[in-house]
Design a protein around this nucleic acid. Structure first.
Lengths: 203, 203
DNA sequence: GTCTATATTGTGATAGAC
DNA sequence: GTCTATCACAATATAGAC
């Protein structure tokens, strides 16, 4: 091996990721994946027996890029308000690096909701532990009464939704200039953080 | 006509709506639409020349169910806090009646973002008028400084996202009992309203 | 308007040479 | 491991009888 060439398996996975994320499972074509990888269809089936298997690899990888990070920051031993600040900032940054993955994951999960039970990297126990300690932290911080589920849902909604709804937000609010979307999102980092922290503060 | 039979065109449109919304354009099959409508494929093409045309009808209809309502309430002559309350409540109600349409619309728009320019029921002028008067109302109400674009984005995110992310929210937060999702959403009506109004209030 | 039958093309997957 | 050629079937669309 001369060194700077990626191995074929990785080449295929990269191509498949791009095509599946852009087109979805149903819209993706093995031919297009092969073309993108610079190889032919037969080789695709040599490495991954079927379209389903190739998709499965891409999907698991995508899910694991995003999912654990949601609760990672939330278990840091810092003040809740700092957690929230850190979460919003870092989570929006992650999405900025892979802006189409949230829509991809959610579309595929809606297409087949059962999929998630196979893949979920959490036990119910881990989850209920996180939720009950978050519940405690909300009280300790002197915030308004809110269930941890509703709070987490709100945080994630405010981070992710604008990326999924970009085809609407861009033309309605920002016109044709794509740069303004980046600006809009960068502003949101502080805007959303302040919005949430203020919402949680009693009067 | 004996009375209680719908005409075939409507029968087809109903079937197409169900199938397209569940499977998306790429996943939908003309055969399945025909079966659902209780007719055969040839008749589909008799009424709608192609799959694209049939889809176009369904998509336009779906978009017009949802889109205008977003800004309808926002132009009522009532206090901003009342508008927000009314908007959250009525918008979540609309989504509850068509819980899969938001994911459908957003997926199809991401598949082809250009589509929206053909269909948008708003002129840029109407939009900028709404935004600048909303901007004024935020000041008049004595709320925190926030751009109308960010506020509207937040409101819509908090209403719509939980429906799109249901395949994640349900198993993580609510277990297997589907009824708990309805409960969760019903709670959100007041939770989200309070969350937003509190976020907008200066301390 | 509605059907059966069929044309035509697209698509995932495999066989087999090198 | 990689390719060309091809199979088998799925899917949109049309022709033509009733």
């Amino acid at each position: 091996m001369s060194g700077n060439e990626k191995n074929t398996e990785q080449l295929i996975l990269d191509a498949a990721r791009n095509v599946f994320i852009e087109k979805g499972f149903d819209g993706a074509r093995m031919q297009e994946i092969a073309d993108t990888a610079g190889i032919n269809k037969a080789l695709l089936h040599y490495y991954y027996r079927s379209k389903d298997q190739l998709f499965e690899s891409v999907f698991r990888e995508s899910l694991s890029t995003f999912f654990p990070r949601i609760f990672e920051v939330m278990s840091f031993p810092i003040e809740l308000s700092e957690k929230i600040k850190l979460f919003i900032d870092s989570y929006i940054d992650i999405i900025l690096q892979n802006p189409h993955i949230p829509a991809f994951i959610l579309h595929e999960l809606n297409r087949n909701p059962a999929r998630i039970t196979d893949i979920l990297p959490f036990t119910e126990k881990t989850m209920s532990g996180l939720l009950s300690s978050l519940s405690q932290e909300i009280k300790t911080a002197g915030f308004i009464e809110i269930s941890p589920e509703q709070l987490v849902t709100n945080m994630i909604s405010l981070c992710i939704f604008p990326f999924i709804a970009r085809p609407i937000i861009q033309p309605i609010f920002l016109g044709n200039d794509a740069d303004r979307f980046d600006e809009f999102i960068q502003n949101r980092k502080t805007e959303v953080t302040q919005f949430i922290l203020n919402a949680l503060t009693k009067k």
